[in-house]
Structure formats: structure tokens, C-alpha cells
């Protein structure tokens, strides 16, 4: 089985032009992801876990290196692909679950969850069924389904967001602290979703704050170290 994702020699430095600051965050990072496994990025805060995960999604632009993503039997380098190609990869291949919900004004919670399914061509009927299943599973009270999530509590918003992230069966799932600020009961529900995704063959790269969650889902740990601070160099013109 070919790897779902192969990242090679990723390096990234934030250049803040207006403050004249350079912040190196990634240096020569390489990793592979295979079907059915969960790779957990681990390291102290500031070690670049989130930056690496965002780079894998094409949300951050790396300075060097490649991220090859298996899509329709060939690899696409998300670092150098045309944005249109990245949009297509995100539609069919890579899913993203973050802890923060980007709320679309006025859209009811159930439709927020249905959104990616409808966009990928799933019928309204099936999309609604699956959305209801996911919201139920994550203990989102049924009375909230038809309300826009903007007014929900942080935990409720997060669960709506997780439901959305798991709505489509992406081959690759990127999870950015999906259980942060969830209680143990709800975290366990998320773990169930992750285990189910692994069983259907999805490859997962995740950052997990809680050690017990990490221990339950991780197949491999990718350990990261903060780059020796070289920031605040004033030599950059």
C-alpha cells in the first residue's frame, strides 16, 4: 500500500516584514502517513506542531520541501500545486477538524454539518441522515440543530465543528486538538469517531492536548522540538 501522505524536508520561517522579525518554526521535517493509522504530532508548545499540521493542509506555505498527497492514484504536491488543485484536494481527499468553528452567519447547525456533504454531491436526504447521526453521537441537543451555532457555548460549537469534519469519509484527516475543552464523556465520543475512521482506512494526523486521548488513538508519535530561537534577528532587510 502506498503512503497516503509523504512530507519531505519541510522548512518554514515566518517573516514579519513590518516588525522586521523572522521566526523559524519548521526545519527539515519529514513524515509519512499510511492508511488506517493515526500519527500524533507531539512536542512542547511552540515546537511547530500546529504549523506543520497547517502546512499539510496547505493553509501555511512552506519555504522548502514537498508534501505529496495521494489522490486518484497519483501524488499531488500540495506545497506547489495550483490553488484550484488544493481546493479539489480539500474537497475529496483531506479533511480538517480544528477546535475553532468558523461560523457562517445564520446557517443552522445541522446545515453546517451537511455543507461539505452537499458540496461533494451527496443528496440532501443522505446528508441530513448522516448529520443527524453525527450530532446525536456527539451529544448535541436536538433542540440546537435548527439554530445557528454562533450563539452556542464553546463546547457545543466545537462538537458541531467535529461533526462537520467527520461528515465526509476523507482518506486523510487532520485533527487540530479536536478534544480540547471537551469533557471526558464527549472526548470519548470523538475517540470513537477517530477509531471508526481508522477502521475504514483513513490516515489521521493529529495534535492532542490530553495525554489519555493521545494514548487511545495514537499508532505512532512524531516528536517535535522547538527550533533554537534565532528570532528577533535584526539583520533581515
Amino acid at each position: 500500500m502506498p503512503a497516503l501522505l509523504i512530507a519531505e524536508n519541510l522548512s518554514k520561517t515566518f517573516v514579519l516584514h513590518n516588525q522586521n522579525i523572522q521566526l523559524p518554526v519548521l526545519y527539515q521535517q519529514s513524515l509519512e502517513l499510511h492508511a488506517g493509522e493515526c500519527l500524533v504530532l507531539n512536542g512542547p508548545s511552540g515546537s511547530g506542531k500546529s504549523s506543520l499540521l497547517r502546512s499539510l493542509y496547505g493553509n501555511y506555505q512552506t519555504d522548502s520541501g514537498n508534501i505529496n498527497i495521494l489522490s486518484e492514484n497519483s501524488y499531488v504536491d500540495i506545497c506547489h500545486a495550483h490553488p484550484r488543485k488544493v481546493v479539489a484536494l480539500r474537497r475529496n481527499t483531506i479533511g480538517w477538524v480544528s477546535q475553532f468553528l468558523r461560523v457562517i452567519p445564520r446557517l443552522p447547525a445541522i446545515e453546517v454539518v451537511m455543507q461539505p456533504m452537499l458540496e461533494s454531491g451527496i443528496t440532501e436526504h443522505h446528508a441530513r441522515d448522516k448529520a443527524e447521526y453525527l450530532l446525536n453521537h456527539l451529544n448535541v441537543s436536538q433542540r440546537l440543530w435548527e439554530l445557528p451555532p454562533a450563539t452556542f457555548s464553546g463546547g457545543e460549537q466545537q462538537r458541531v465543528n467535529i461533526a462537520q469534519g467527520f461528515a465526509l469519509d476523507y482518506p486523510i484527516l487532520l485533527l487540530d486538538e479536536p478534544t480540547a475543552s471537551l469533557d471526558d464523556n464527549n472526548s470519548a465520543k470523538v475517540i470513537e469517531l477517530i477509531q471508526a475512521a481508522k477502521r475504514r482506512g483513513a490516515g489521521i494526523v493529529g495534535i492532542f492536548h490530553d495525554a489519555w486521548v493521545r494514548d487511545q488513538v495514537a499508532d505512532r508519535i512524531y516528536t517535535m522540538q522547538a527550533i533554537t530561537p534565532k528570532g528577533k534577528t535584526r539583520d533581515y532587510q
Partner: peptide, 19 residues
Amino acid sequence: MINLESNIGKPADDEPAQE
């Protein structure tokens, strides 16, 4: 060491789209 100057500001869409 990190090459700070490399690829800064390089556009992400340097590969032509297929469509």
C-alpha cells in the same frame, strides 16, 4: 542551518492549473 532567504514570498500557484 536554515536558509532564511530561500523562497520567501514565492507564490503558491507557480504550477499551472489543469482546467
